[in-house]
Design a protein around this nucleic acid. Structure first.
Lengths: 258, 258
DNA sequence: TAGATTGTTAATCGATTAACAATC
DNA sequence: TAGATTGTTAATCGATTAACAATC
């Protein structure tokens, strides 16, 4: 069931970091296309996508030589080439499992349909939800998951269930033949080799922002004191062992001897 | 308004990649904590977080020497240290702008409140939404944005508006004093230096999955033929110029001369 | 041709990881 | 003490970027 080959082998040498930026370029190009701009330079496109122009040119060079020196890139031609590289010139039926607030938001999200993704089914374990119309289609019971996947040739599943249900849903999707999963549930999923999982975690993004925000606010470091004896939801246990030998409070990890 | 200093200077040398993983570790540790596990080894914690144990130890070493050789890490103590490093031991009032499906999902998302984030206000430009109760609070009109930010000391804004409104909302948030933005709108935002933006893009995640899926399905490469004369939503213009000199169809980008 | 801009090189930077000395 | 596991080193790998020759 798993292929046993790594990503880098599979992807004809296009770096992951580049793949992750292609949709950005595609979006910027689509905007130019809608404004009927015929041609764009790497400098302009890079600015529109929010990246460095050298990086843009290097990224595009992995796809082929699609620009013209002295002129730039033909917008429509590049839209097509990136779409093809990303696999967006074909139709991808997806199934969304879990139709709470987030699942409903995803079902209604226009960005899917416009890019070759077709919502083949909306599924939920709650019988009260089955039959409810969301984004123009009736929610089906998750019991039908296997048949829906097989009948529609679904290879991409979107998980918007509570954390507790995510792994079981994943297992069933994978057993039914799904090989790519977009996970919105706050859990680490275990999947067999050959199955790709991407994770979107709302709270993690906020936590990363909080980290930087903290550095800006007080500037410099958060207090390096012992933890308080009592705090919100934190037990006294943490006050316990602090390695007595630790001389770490004043070290500078950025300055290490070569 | 901008500090003019780069991230790396500001963050006491903790690599961005490490910062991005700390919330993962925190989540895994919280799970252990709830199960009253007192101590965990780097091997176990790494498995729970889905990373390599050497990477975990290196990441934690940036925070200090919080483990005990031969024993492992004290779960509660590490929870506290990571929380503190991420700035989660303080309260972060956030404002959510845009209460369509996604905004409502975010407002209802429990993961925020449990980690020091407090939803100070829900705001929308649609007068029909103002006053509506979502997640226990009334939606307010976006006209009040500046006063809400100032009165609550909001430094983090979450944008869940349509793409067209995102930049204006951003400008207003920034003018009012917000210095971190979590952007769910499918647009590149322009912000002054010193303001952090993180972007969550649902359709981009799916596109990355499609790329890998394509490689699995047909295996190997998508057809490298000229684009079709007509295709779904693609104009004939793209058939135009293909550089005549391009000898690229058979090159191997992975094998470059050193 | 002169000007513009790509595609590529090579240097640099940052992240990952195996291995192991330190040490509980 | 013997066994276990951290914290750190150093090698490797991958990503970024300035610079510029190629060429439209």
């Amino acid at each position: 069931m798993a292929t046993g080959r790594s990503h880098t082998e599979r992807t004809r040498g296009i770096p992951e970091a580049t793949v992750a930026r292609l949709p950005l370029y595609l979006r910027a190009l689509t905007g130019l296309s809608e404004r009927s701009v015929p041609t764009v330079s790497s400098e302009e496109l890079a600015a529109a996508a929010g990246v460095n122009s050298a990086k843009l040119r290097k990224d595009l060079s992995y796809l082929g030589s699609y620009g013209t020196r002295g002129v730039g890139y033909d917008v429509e031609y590049l839209v097509y080439q990136i779409s093809r590289e990303l696999g967006l010139t074909q139709d991808w039926p997806v199934v969304i499992v879990g139709l709470g607030n987030l699942g409903a938001a995803l079902a209604n999200y226009g960005g899917f349909a416009s890019r070759g993704f077709r919502v083949a089914a909306l599924m939920d374990a709650d019988p009260k939800l089955t039959g409810k119309m969301i984004a123009g289609q009736a929610v089906r019971h998750v019991d039908e998951l296997e048949s829906v996947v097989r009948e529609n040739g679904v290879s991409i599943g979107v998980i918007a269930t509570p954390a507790g249900a995510a792994q079981e849903v994943t297992d069933r999707l994978v057993d039914a033949g799904v090989t790519s999963i977009l996970n919105f549930a706050p859990t680490v999923l275990t999947v067999p080799e050959g199955v790709d999982v991407r994770k979107v975690d709302l709270s993690i993004e906020l936590q990363i922002l909080a980290f930087h925000e903290q550095r800006k606010a007080g500037d410099g470091l958060p207090p390096d004191a012992e933890p308080p004896a009592s705090g919100p939801g934190i037990s006294g246990a943490m006050v316990r062992r602090r390695p007595s030998s630790a001389p770490k409070s004043d070290r500078e990890p950025g300055v290490q001897p070569a």
